[in-house]
Structure formats: structure tokens, C-alpha cells
């Protein structure tokens, strides 16, 4: 305590081990490094570079030559666009439908909550593929689609075969199925918000609807968004089922090509790579959306990787520090 040397020592940091200790020997690690490196090298070589005889050509095993040839082709690009459209539109239906269903499910009105439960039972209980085929064949049940009052007057009458295009069938199939899942996600989110929040809102004179949309749902977002991100990524891939009902999305667009060229594997790789590209972008997007909705729940927002990178660069050039403290 009174030792003067004691005082000059830094408070934090090692106080009794001044030298770096000799670590425990871990020979297993080295074995693992060698084995894994070997396997990885073999994998990269065979799948990436090794050539084999295919017909009168020498090609890599996965046909990277063909992959490169088609990766940016307009047909595939159009397929990708269709996949993105389907994903976005179906998720929009799913999210809006899910919120409506969740609010219904939690309503004190037994009819509403029962209807929502029935919906979930059906749309979650049957395979999406089957639902897609149903919508695709809607004209079998309803050759004409009449919009009006049940048993009453008809306002618009549509021909199902022209109105329900394959795209619309896919959209309905994927979106309505998604709504059932989103309902459960939204419901869990709403239930995660403390009851006191609604009471506080009500005591301030907010109606239940206002309290729901201004106070409860924004807080539920923290719980809703992560699984919604996974659902979106799931939807991206699930949209490939639309190929079965003749929608030319990403998978179908490569199928159309390999149906004539027989380059099945390279074209499936083209599709997979695009799915991976979009999934990666979605993952980054999800990170930022989650960050936005965690506002207020943590005392200090951690920096994004980009901000951290900029900080690091700034530290190299101290004169250029422009970033606000917690931008």
C-alpha cells in the first residue's frame, strides 16, 4: 500500500505476470491445420481447376467455362429480376397479411381471432407447392371470377384464365402462405412488448389502434425483424417453386437454357451463385434494419463494420477525422 513502486504501476493490466508465459503445447492444432489445408487445397484444385475430358472438350469439372459464359447473359438477368419481383411482392403480401392476421388473432373478438387461427391452420398446414398448383388451376373451380356481394349483385366479372396469370398465381400462393408464418412472427413480437406500454399509451388517451401502431408494433419490430430477414431469404429460394407453374424466374431461366444445351451443372451453378449474391446483400441489409429498430434498447449503439473501418483509417490519418462521435 505504502510502497511507492506500487503507486506508479498502471491500475489495469497484469500486476504479477510481467513476462509472456509459455503456452500449453497444443500439437492437435497443428495436425488439424495440416489436414484441413490439405482438404481445402484438394477441393479448390478439383472443383476449380482440374480439367476432364467432356465430349471433345477439356473442361473443369464444374464447367466454370460455361458458368462464365452465361453468368451475365440477359435471359438469366431477366429470370433474376422475376425472382426479385416475386420475392419482394410475396413478402409484402406476407408482411401486411401477417400483421393483419396477428392483430386479428390477438383481438378480443372471437370471430376475428378464430378466422385468423383457421387461416393459419390451412395455409401453414399444406405444402406451398400444392398451394401454388391450386392457384394455378383456379380456373378449374372458378372459370369466371365475380367480384361483388355474396349471393348479391356482381360488380366485376373476370375470366380466370386471363386474370390469374402464372405470375399472379405464384404471387398469391407464396404471399398467402407467407402471411401465415409472418402472423406467428408478428404475434410473438407483439406479445413480447410489456403490457405496461399499452396501459401507458391508453392512459395518455391513445385509442387501442393508435397504441398498437405507434407504441407496440415499433417495439415489437426488434423481435419481428430478425426472423423476417430469414423469411425473406427463405422466400427468395422458395420463389424457385414458381418454375413449376411456368413462371420464368431464375431457376426456370437456367432450366430453359440447359434443356437445349445439356449444360445442367454449370447452369445450376449460375443460378446458385446469383441466389448467394442476393442472399448476401439481404444479410447486410438486415443488419442495418435491425440496427435502426434497436434504437433506445441499448445505451450505446455499437459501430457498424463500415464505421469501424473508417475509424481505423482515421486513426492512421488523424488530420482527417470527420466522423461524428456516434454517427
Amino acid at each position: 500500500m505504502t510502497d511507492p513502486q506500487e503507486k506508479t504501476r498502471p491500475v489495469a493490466g497484469p500486476t504479477f505476470i510481467d513476462e509472456k508465459p509459455v503456452p500449453v503445447p497444443r500439437p492437435g492444432r497443428w495436425v488439424a491445420v495440416v489436414v484441413l489445408t490439405l482438404i481445402a487445397a484438394w477441393g479448390v484444385y478439383t472443383l476449380g481447376f482440374e480439367k476432364i475430358q467432356r465430349g471433345h472438350l477439356m473442361q473443369t469439372r464444374l464447367g466454370w467455362e460455361v458458368v462464365g459464359q452465361y453468368f451475365l447473359s440477359p435471359n438469366i438477368f431477366n429470370g433474376l429480376l422475376m425472382t426479385l419481383e416475386l420475392t419482394v411482392a410475396a413478402m409484402a403480401i406476407g408482411i401486411i397479411g401477417g400483421v393483419v392476421l396477428a392483430v386479428m388473432r390477438l383481438s378480443s373478438n372471437a370471430m376475428l381471432s378464430g378466422a385468423s387461427a383457421l387461416y393459419i391452420w390451412f395455409f401453414r398446414g399444406t405444402p406451398v407447392l400444392v398451394q401454388l398448383l391450386f392457384w394455378f388451376n383456379l380456373s378449374y373451380m372458378f372459370p369466371r371470377i365475380d367480384i361483388g356481394i355474396p349471393f348479391g349483385p356482381v360488380f366485376v366479372s373476370l375470366d380466370a384464365n386471363t386474370f390469374i396469370t402464372p405470375f399472379l398465381a405464384a404471387l398469391l400462393g407464396l404471399g398467402l402462405h407467407e402471411a401465415a408464418y409472418m402472423c406467428e412472427i408478428v404475434r410473438a413480437g407483439i406479445l413480447s412488448v410489456d403490457e405496461g406500454q399499452e396501459e401507458a399509451a391508453q392512459s395518455l388517451g391513445m385509442t387501442r389502434r393508435r397504441a398498437m401502431f405507434r407504441i407496440i408494433l415499433p417495439q415489437a419490430m426488434k423481435v419481428i425483424i430478425p426472423p423476417t430477414g430469414s423469411q425473406t431469404i427463405g422466400m427468395l429460394k422458395m420463389s424457385s417453386l414458381a418454375s413449376v407453374i411456368t413462371v420464368v424466374e431464375l431457376l426456370h431461366s437456367v432450366q430453359l437454357i440447359y434443356a437445349s444445351t445439356y449444360d445442367t451443372v454449370p447452369l445450376l451453378i449460375v443460378a446458385s451463385l446469383w441466389y448467394l449474391v442476393v442472399t448476401s446483400i439481404l444479410t447486410v441489409g438486415q443488419y442495418y434494419v435491425e440496427r435502426r429498430y434497436s434504437r433506445g434498447s441499448v445505451r450505446n449503439q455499437p459501430l457498424t463494420p463500415l464505421q469501424r473501418l473508417r475509424r481505423m483509417l482515421d486513426d492512421f490519418h488523424p488530420g482527417m477525422r470527420q466522423l461524428p462521435p456516434n454517427a
Binding site: 405496461g196 401507458a200 388517451g205 417495439q219 433506445g296
Partner: peptide
């Protein structure tokens, strides 16, 4: 209710 303010034991501020 607008005319009746209420203060709760556990505050119930809106965290977001």
C-alpha cells in the same frame, strides 16, 4: 382519459 394523467410504479416510458 386524456384528462386523467397516470404515473406508474415502473414508469412505462416508451423505450423506442
Amino acid at each position: 382519459r386524456e384528462q386523467i394523467g397516470m404515473v406508474f410504479q415502473n414508469f412505462n416510458l416508451f423505450p423506442h
